[in-house]
Amino acid sequence: MQLNWGFMEKYLPMYIDAAILTVKIAFGGILFSLITGFICAIVRYYKIPILNGIAIVYIELSRNTPLLVQLFFLYFGLPKIGVVLSAEACAIIGVTFLGGSYMAESIRSGFESIDKVQLESAASLDLGPWLTMKEVVFPQAIAVSVPGICANVIFLIKETSVVSGIALADLMYVTKDLIGLYYETDEALLMLVIFYLIILLPISIIASVLERRLRYAGFGD
């Protein structure tokens, strides 16, 4: 296989721009899905009436539909009722809509892992719901949640590859473009794989290190 290095060098800046876009969407989406997930987890944990029902419906809807379909609805469907969003905003909202439910389940499983005795002890110390969450539940729950959250982060970065479907010039889009224009398929695909590895490998390594460290930091038993 003879690789055309000149071609790769020439289009490297395009790939770098595309990678930055991918990272930007992933970062925004992950940040907002952490916030959404945290809110949903709190709502589900305390079983706040009405909101709990809404959270359940949201989680089921988001977990059982593909991101690409969610994006098509946001990008092509919503403008028909006057909600016009830029492709980038759609992508971030889409990733948030998808990721929020996954984050919620990971964070909630951390909350649920806290023994009931601890809540009763906190109540007997008159800590109140806010302090109980802040001082007792959260610090222990986060250690349980982190592996799940890390897996979700990697999953969401991978999922951003579908935003090319709504014409955002991310890594997939650039690759398809170059293949279509110049037929330098091997080179374009190789750069695609390398760029995804550059984005994903460090995160995957950090995740596994974090997981190992946190397993040491077991609280209670």
Partner: peptide
């Protein structure tokens, strides 16, 4: 696992044909 499934699809659809 680390590659997005869409990348794998591109490799199989565009890359294998070519290679």
């Amino acid at each position: 696992r680390i590659m997005p499934q869409l990348v794998l699809l591109f490799i199989a659809y565009f890359g294998v044909t070519r290679a």
